[in-house]
């Protein structure tokens, strides 16, 4: 909805930035901290738009996900079209365009973990958390996502929760692992 309104405001897809920088979700939507971190990234690249992935990472770090408001604010700040920013944001699977829980569980579903039966781990997580891939628990604690090869094939099956990698995971280990996250 918001994206549609923003797109209506835009007369051109990119270039004419004034149309939406004056809108509700201009660059001032970003916090001082976010802007200062983005400025640092911009200083490292030849032109502003080259910092867009870093900008998305920064805003996601502070807000947990990338909302339509964040897309348009980043676009305004980097003098890009909102659709351009969104085309990048939606390309990369670890930029979240929907809200996620406080912790994101990534279950490796690639080939070595397939052979070592990641399916059993997924089934157990589904039962324990009462959610499927792509869903978030009612208390907003966990989001469950499939992920391509975590590069831990000699210790399959593997899962990652936030920054923590768990190897040789068994169904019996899951309760103890999940307890660490609140």
């Amino acid at each position: 909805m918001i994206m549609q309104e923003i797109n209506k405001k835009q007369t051109t897809r990119s270039g004419d930035t004034a149309k939406y920088t004056e809108g509700v979700f201009g660059a001032d939507y970003l916090s001082d901290q976010e802007r200062s971190e983005i400025d640092h990234e911009v200083s490292m690249v030849p032109h502003k738009s080259a910092a867009v992935i870093e900008a998305l990472k920064i805003v996601q770090h502070h807000r947990g996900w990338i909302s339509d408001e964040s897309v348009t604010a980043i676009a305004a700040y980097l003098q890009m079209g909102a659709a351009e920013v969104d085309s990048v944001a939606t390309f990369y699977n670890l930029i979240f365009r929907k809200p996620v829980g406080r912790h994101v569980i990534l279950v490796c579903d690639s080939i070595s973990c397939y052979v070592m039966k990641y399916g059993d781990i997924y089934k157990a997580l589904q039962e324990k958390l009462k959610i499927k891939f792509g869903e978030t628990t009612g208390d907003q604690c966990f989001t469950l996502l499939p992920n391509a090869c975590l590069g831990c094939c000699d210790h399959a099956p593997a899962i990652m929760i936030d920054n923590d990698l768990y190897k040789d995971v068994t169904v019996g280990m899951l309760d103890r692992i999940l307890q660490k996250y609140t």
């Binding site: 690249v45 080259a50 910092a51 867009v52 992935i53 390309f91 990369y92 699977n93 670890l94």
Partner: peptide
């Protein structure tokens, strides 16, 4: 990076480094 196997392809990697779709 922020995911996507394509980033390992060398020219797609360059696009990703330039802040574009890989």
């Amino acid at each position: 990076g922020v995911g996507r196997y394509m980033c390992g392809e060398e020219t797609a990697l360059l696009n990703a480094l330039e802040g574009k779709r890989a």
